[in-house]
């Protein structure tokens, strides 16, 4: 019983490049979840983390099925699984929400990315976005466009769907100290200035200014 439930070290090697303990994996998921929740645009897909967490959950659930029911220990595990699953679904849900909201821009960005750039969408999300795009176009055509005069029958989705507002303010907590972040002035009378961000400090600032830092993991959105 003890052996069955013990998460041996082989489980932690599931990550392909870096070796993470399951606990580190969960905190990575939490980070990705919060960043995704607060960033105005769709962030880089973390499908590796998602896959590893799914693997952990399935592994644990299989173990639990073999275990005796009604045990105190089993209920601990079930509660933890529920908590992790909540985070995972909330993460995926907020991504889907953004894909639905910005689909033409998301697809455009995915199309224009270079070979070596990290993918914005997981394969499943990409399929979803494409299907969503096709369905929206079909809907618009069958409901309205085909009844329009011929010169008004096309619609540029890229122009009609609002872009993510990169200028919106976000709250962040600094993980790795940063120096000389350029803060652009709000009004013409003010002049631009630079700030230093100490590790552990918290700031309110425009997303555009710190977007690269979110992508590199130097700051976390809160």
């Amino acid at each position: 019983m003890e052996e069955e439930l013990a998460l041996s070290d082989q489980g932690s090697d599931a990550g392909s490049e870096e070796v993470l303990t399951p606990a580190e994996l969960i905190s990575k998921l939490e980070e990705a979840w919060l960043n995704e929740k607060f960033a105005p645009e769709l962030l880089e897909s973390k499908s590796e983390i998602v896959e590893c967490v799914m693997e952990q959950l399935n592994h644990m659930e299989q173990n639990l099925q073999r275990a005796r029911q009604g045990d105190l220990k089993i209920s601990f595990h079930h509660m933890e699984i529920e908590r992790i699953r909540f985070m995972l679904s909330s993460y995926l849900r907020s991504r889907l929400h953004k894909i639905e909201k910005f689909f033409p821009h998301v697809l455009e960005k995915e199309k224009s990315r270079g070979e070596d750039d990290p993918s914005l969408l997981s394969p499943e999300e990409f399929a979803f976005a494409k299907e969503y795009m096709t369905n929206t176009e079909t809907l618009l055509k069958s409901v309205a466009l085909r009844h329009m005069p011929p010169n008004l029958q096309t619609v540029e989705l890229l122009k009609c769907v609002p872009k993510p507002n990169l200028d919106s303010f976000v709250f962040l907590k600094v993980k790795k100290a940063q120096e000389s972040i350029l803060v652009e002035p709000e009004t013409d009378e003010q002049s631009e200035y630079t700030i230093d961000m100490a590790a552990g400090s918290q700031h309110l600032i425009r997303y555009r200014t710190i977007a690269p830092l979110v992508a590199s993991g130097a700051v976390n959105l809160i």
């Binding site: 507002n165 200028d167 919106s168 303010f169 976000v170 709250f171 803060v183 652009e184 002035p185 709000e186 009004t187 003010q190 700030i195 400090s201 918290q202 700031h203 309110l204 600032i205 425009r206 809160i222």
Partner: peptide, 30 residues
């Protein structure tokens, strides 16, 4: 009309109480 604020010692719950409202209104004003 500041462009940056430092929020040390504020807890997540406190930021969250004012967060959405503040950022939304700043976006509108912008």
């Amino acid at each position: 009309q500041e462009a940056h604020a430092k929020l040390d010692n504020l807890t997540l719950m406190e930021i969250n109480t004012i967060g959405t409202f503040l950022t939304e209104s700043l976006n509108h004003m912008y």
